[in-house]
């Protein structure tokens, strides 16, 4: 039996059927250890985002449940929201606010204490590395700057579980590398549990302690990246994945 104190995220037989009888998840189960970075990997449409959205209380599961720090996403979504911080794949920010105003806006939901709020924003400024640009309106930001701001707003609140959906989606190599380093460093320093999704296998190998390979709504393999590579006698996770789904990379 898994204990909530060791596993802040426990997912049990999660199923999601969208209207039109589209089965996005077909009974997913996994758990994330405290302080680890767990990656859900798989191709587009595999069910990664649906899983994260259910854990982030955006969607409701058709069957099954997920516990976050012992709170059920079905029965106690309000409590779940207090212990998570979620970065959607396609997230944006209010373009008519400045970066600082946006960070204070988010921080205000997590604390009433002004000093704590200032501390969060200072932390976000450090994580994002945006410096004085935080005083500019968000509409003037590049895509990379916006993503760094959003990573910063997700991590600054020091969540017990950070949920990051494709954290480097749409970023160039330099910005993607910066973001990966930030996540890794922050998780190591703070011991935050991170659940992320990606279809970039190299990114996952670099970031994650363990991964769950998801395909057509099911987890088809799970374990540390190196162990999976060895187990499937592959050179990297990409090869593991293609071996598992039985498709050749052309």
């Amino acid at each position: 039996m898994l204990l909530g104190s060791d596993y802040p995220v426990i997912v049990r037989d999660l199923e999601k059927v969208y209207p039109g009888n589209v089965h996005a998840l077909k009974g997913i189960s996994f758990s994330v250890r405290r302080g680890e970075i767990y990656g859900l990997i798989g191709p587009n449409g595999a069910g990664k985002t649906t899983t994260l959205r259910i854990i982030a209380t955006i969607l409701e599961p058709t069957r099954g449940d997920a516990l976050v720090e012992g709170y059920s996403v079905v029965g106690e979504p309000d409590r779940v929201r207090r212990v998570i911080s979620y970065l959607p794949e396609d997230a944006g920010a209010y373009k008519y606010l400045t970066g600082l105003e946006f960070l204070y806006f988010i921080a205000g939901f997590y604390t009433d204490d002004q000093d704590r709020m200032d501390e969060m924003v200072r932390e976000a400024a450090r994580i994002s590395g945006l410096g004085d640009r935080l005083r500019d309106k968000i509409k003037t930001y590049s895509k990379g700057m916006l993503r760094r701001l959003l990573i910063a707003k997700t991590l600054m609140v020091n969540p017990r579980v950070a949920i990051l959906d494709e954290p480097t989606s749409g970023l160039d190599v330099i910005n993607a590398t910066k973001v990966r380093r930030t996540i890794k460093k922050y998780a190591d320093e703070r011991g935050v549990t991170v659940l992320l999704s990606s279809h970039n296998m190299l990114e996952v190998e670099y970031l994650c302690d363990r991964v769950g390979i998801i395909h057509e709504g099911r987890i088809i393999a799970e374990g540390p990246p190196r162990k999976l590579v060895e187990e499937y006698n592959a050179e990297n996770l990409e090869e593991v994945f293609t071996k598992l789904v039985g498709e050749e990379v052309v």
């Binding site: 959205r53 982030a56 209380t57 955006i58 309000d78 929201r81 207090r82 998570i84 911080s85 979620y86 970065l87 959607p88 396609d90 997230a91 944006g92 920010a93 209010y94 373009k95 988010i106 939901f109 997590y110 949920i163």
Partner: peptide
């Protein structure tokens, strides 16, 4: 449009 709805719905607010 500003892609904030998903973020808002996951925040600790009623």
């Amino acid at each position: 449009e500003e892609k904030m709805l998903e973020t808002l719905l996951s925040l600790p607010l009623s």
